[in-house]
Amino acid sequence: MSQTDDSPFDELPLRIGLGQFREPTDDRLRFIKQLGVDDVLLNMYRYSPDYPHLPNEDRPLLATPEEWTVDALVELRERIERAGLRLNAIENVPIAFYDHVMLGGDRRDEQLDDLRRIVRNLGEAGIPMFGYHWMPSGVWRNTEVAVRGDARASGFDLDAADDSLTHEREYTEAELWENYERFLRAVLPVAEEVGVKLCLHPNDPPVDSLGGVPQLFRNFENFQRAMDLVPSDNHGLEFCLGCWSEMGEDLEAAIRYFGSRGKLYYVHFRDVEGTVPRFNETFLDQGNYDSARIFGLLDEVGFRGMIIPDHVPHVEGDSTWDHRGRAHAVGYLQGLLAMHRACAET
């Protein structure tokens, strides 16, 4: 089954979903449905170890590129659907799947072949979006702060960041852009063929460089360049409001620009206090921007995708997945959605 531009997902309204989890266990899926959520995405480094057919309970599935088969992805989608949910996207593959692609290493061509196969299999399995990032070292956080009620939230301080090389040498922006364009030219034709949308996430934190590696997707100008580099209706943004808030860019101008061009595919709705070089995450009503105004602007520019909470503060009695903090964020966003629907009807 291949998703095309006229897939059922494109006919859905703006809606609140849930993501930022790797293991769709039965109890987790029930909890999500109990929150009144119908749409999810998965951070797919592994999926649940409780499947009865596993030869070893501790063996993670989808841990290597060879395991991202059509059958495995269909099984995953159908598991989500049996819980009354829709699987909108898979967000990220392990960095080890494409570190040589990002940095131009010896295994680049092999990894590009793997990525093409994974994207093709996603489309054939009926999973319409694939979120990706361009961060060879992943997300950086190096502080923890107390926010409202002594909830704990992560942060970043550039002055406290380790400046040692993470990948043996320093890389130039020209190298990263060359590698990025090669990735797009290799993978986008497959995405277009099978109807998968590729969704780019910002670098987090959006600073010039970390560990000797340029952080390309740190500002408005570079996102413009990314979208224009290899023009495609199947390439857009996994628009992380938290990262854009960290940048200190004109958030409303970015939403209007990319929204008017149909490049907002789904949204991470979170916020921070402060901007680079120093910031910390916080609750949605305590960050840099006006959540209600930004929510309304997304609706105004015609965004009709899925909005999910992103990182949330760790509240009292929370789990490692921060399910209580996520429940609060889902309820907050559902309230914003209800308010805007009511205003639209008056």
Rank of each mutant, 00 (worst) to 15 (best):
V145N: 13
L103E: 07
R107G: 02
E67Q: 15
R82W: 07
R116W: 02
G138L: 13
G149E: 13
H167E: 03
E168L: 12
G149L: 07
V74Y: 00
S137C: 12
E67C: 04
L115T: 00
T172S: 15
L122H: 06
L122F: 14
G149C: 06
R107P: 00
Y180M: 15
P128L: 09
E81I: 08
R107T: 08
N142V: 11
E168I: 05
R152A: 10
R120S: 10
L73A: 04
N179S: 02
V145L: 10
G126A: 12
E173I: 10
G126P: 02
V70I: 15
F156G: 01
E67R: 03
F97W: 15
Y180T: 06
E91N: 14
G123D: 05
R141E: 12
R117E: 10
T166C: 09
R86W: 10
P136Q: 08
I95C: 00
D99R: 15
E181Y: 02
G155K: 09
D150I: 08
D71C: 07
L85V: 08
F156A: 04
L112H: 05
G138E: 04
T143D: 14
T172W: 05
Y180E: 11
F130I: 03
I90K: 01
S137M: 14
N121L: 04
P94D: 12
R117K: 13
A83V: 12
V147N: 05
V70P: 01
A83R: 05
T143G: 10
E67D: 12
Y180P: 00
L73T: 00
N92L: 09
D99K: 14
H100E: 13
V139W: 01
P94Q: 15
A125I: 04
D71T: 13
G105V: 06
V74K: 11
A160P: 02
P94L: 13
G105L: 02
D109L: 05
I80C: 05
L73N: 01
T172A: 10
I90W: 00
R169E: 03
